[in-house]
């Protein structure tokens, strides 16, 4: 029983990190109507950058590494949106071309990481060692830290979206692009900002999860898919929904791994994706599509 509870708790901690990736994906998807296929590759890239900053080369302390990491990730996101996506928007077939560009970018990042860092996975030490005992269940202190940090990040995001003027503008763009333009919101700036923020979120998740999963060039695809399932299940643009969905799916994953073994992880997520999409086939984009066309 305790072993089972340990597995469940591990699942929850990972899921919390997944929910950060998911919220990032959903922000861009919700505002700019772009499905960013490079989101997973950016997760990996974030992990590699933090590896360089900490144990890899520079040996910075964690807090400093995070402070350096955030602006780098934000800049990468803004650059992708302004240089690669904005020129395509409004052109013929732009939804297909935008998806292809992000998919192309994903492969560029994957292969650049492969060339730069090699195929062998890079280990990352846990930033906190030891174990904690909660209600008689022993769990690693690092997983507890991941859970807490992830919850803090999501809470901050929630405050930003609901309490700040800029956050309101982000929500307005997500709900009606033309309406947002009408009140004078610079929509392109919001797109660039949300893309930057989304890369910060996924890169931070890369940092948080790397001690658990190691860092490998193609390691981003799995979190990307999981994040999407979370977004679909939790509801587009709903940070609280993402947390709830992530916890639920994290527990399901933990139980599957416990009962059937790790090789069943991806098939199970695929089936979950299928089921979720069958329950919500209209897609959360129903609204967004007419706007993109109009």
């Amino acid at each position: 029983m305790t072993q089972f509870l340990e597995v469940i708790f591990g699942g929850i901690a990972q899921a919390a990190a997944y929910s950060i990736i998911a919220v990032g994906l959903s922000l861009v998807y919700g505002t700019a109507r772009t499905l960013n296929f490079a989101h997973g590759a950016l997760y990996t890239t974030g992990a590699y950058i933090s590896w360089i900053l900490t144990v890899g080369y520079l040996g910075l302390p964690l807090w400093l590494a995070v402070l350096v990491l955030i602006p780098i990730l934000f800049g990468i996101g803004v650059a992708i949106e302004t240089l690669m996506l904005r020129p395509l928007r409004g052109g013929k077939n732009w939804r297909v071309t935008a998806m292809m560009v992000t998919l192309g970018l994903a492969f560029v990042l994957d292969n650049a990481n492969l060339i730069l860092f090699g195929a062998v996975a890079k280990p990352m030490p846990a930033f906190i060692e030891g174990t904690v005992s909660i209600f008689g269940v022993t769990v690693s202190a690092y997983r507890v830290a991941v859970l807490i940090i992830a919850l803090i990040i999501v809470a901050l995001l929630e405050v930003f979206l609901n309490r700040t003027r800029f956050g309101w503008a982000v929500r307005a763009v997500a709900q009606d692009i033309q309406g947002a333009r009408q009140v004078g919101i610079d929509v392109n700036r919001i797109f660039a900002f949300t893309f930057g923020l989304s890369v910060v979120l996924t890169g931070m998740a890369g940092l948080l999860l790397s001690p658990i999963f190691l860092i490998s060039p193609q390691g981003g695809w799995e979190p990307f898919l999981k994040a999407f399932v979370i977004v679909v299940l939790g509801g587009l643009g709903s940070t609280r929904g993402a947390i709830a969905a992530a916890f639920f799916l994290g527990m399901v994953e933990a139980m599957v791994v416990y009962q059937l073994g790790a090789s069943w992880t991806m098939p199970v997520w695929l089936v979950t994706l299928l089921l979720v999409l069958m329950i919500r086939p209209q897609g959360l984009l129903g609204k967004g599509q007419s706007e993109a066309a109009g």
């Binding site: 998806m99 898919l225 997520w269 994706l273 299928l274 999409l277 086939p281 897609g283």
Partner: peptide
């Protein structure tokens, strides 16, 4: 199942099939 979905959901679902194939083959 795919054609009941909208836009990007189709992209994601079909790409998920692509990604799930190697573990399924295994």
């Amino acid at each position: 199942p795919c054609l009941r979905l909208q836009g990007e959901y189709v992209a994601l679902f079909t790409f998920a099939i692509h990604l799930a194939m190697p573990p399924l083959i295994q």
